[in-house]
């Protein structure tokens, strides 16, 4: 398992290649990339700054990955989350899960992302022509994380 918080961009192909290198047990790789949009809640977004809680962020994500490994047959997982200043079209977050089969890889990848949205201590501040504002948490994110409690 690897969790990285960084300001630098990441290369999805290189990260996936490194995660599955020399492991013939892997039959499926699922990945998710989160990207900065130029619009949010109907308003234009020129850029954003991501703040986090160093130390807790890594622990929270590691805990989420451990939970995913307890629920599905996961061979390995990688989470990279960027912090600092980002602009529309920039990559923010990468989740990669390797498994023997696609069902486990898809489910674990979505679970990690849903829990990261509600449990990992990151905060976005968006900039627009009218100034800047802290993004408010969405109820739909809690619902997305909550539905995993009902699933096997």
């Amino acid at each position: 398992m690897m969790v990285r918080i960084q300001t630098a961009d990441f290369d999805v192909s290189a990260e996936i290649a490194a995660l599955r290198r020399n492991n013939p047990k892997i039959g499926a790789v699922a990945s998710f990339v989160g990207v900065v949009r130029d619009v949010n809640d109907g308003g234009a977004v020129a850029g954003m700054t991501l703040e986090h809680y160093p130390g807790m962020t890594e622990k929270a994500i590691e805990e989420i990955v451990v939970q995913a490994k307890g629920r599905w047959k996961v061979i390995d997982a990688l989470v990279i989350h960027r912090v600092g200043t980002l602009k529309p079209t920039d990559q923010i977050v990468l989740v990669v899960v390797t498994s023997g089969h696609r069902g486990d890889a898809f489910a674990a990848c979505e679970f990690i992302m849903d829990y990261l949205k509600t449990r990992a201590p990151f905060w976005k501040k968006e900039q627009s022509g009218e100034g800047s504002r802290w993004v408010e948490a969405r109820a739909t994110d809690d619902i997305a994380a909550g539905r995993w409690r009902l699933k096997g």
């Binding site: 809680y53 977050v93 990151f122 905060w123």
Partner: peptide, 10 residues
């Protein structure tokens, strides 16, 4: 101890 708003990463 830390206090903060609901998180908005990802």
């Amino acid at each position: 101890v830390a206090f903060f708003p609901p998180v908005t990463g990802g």
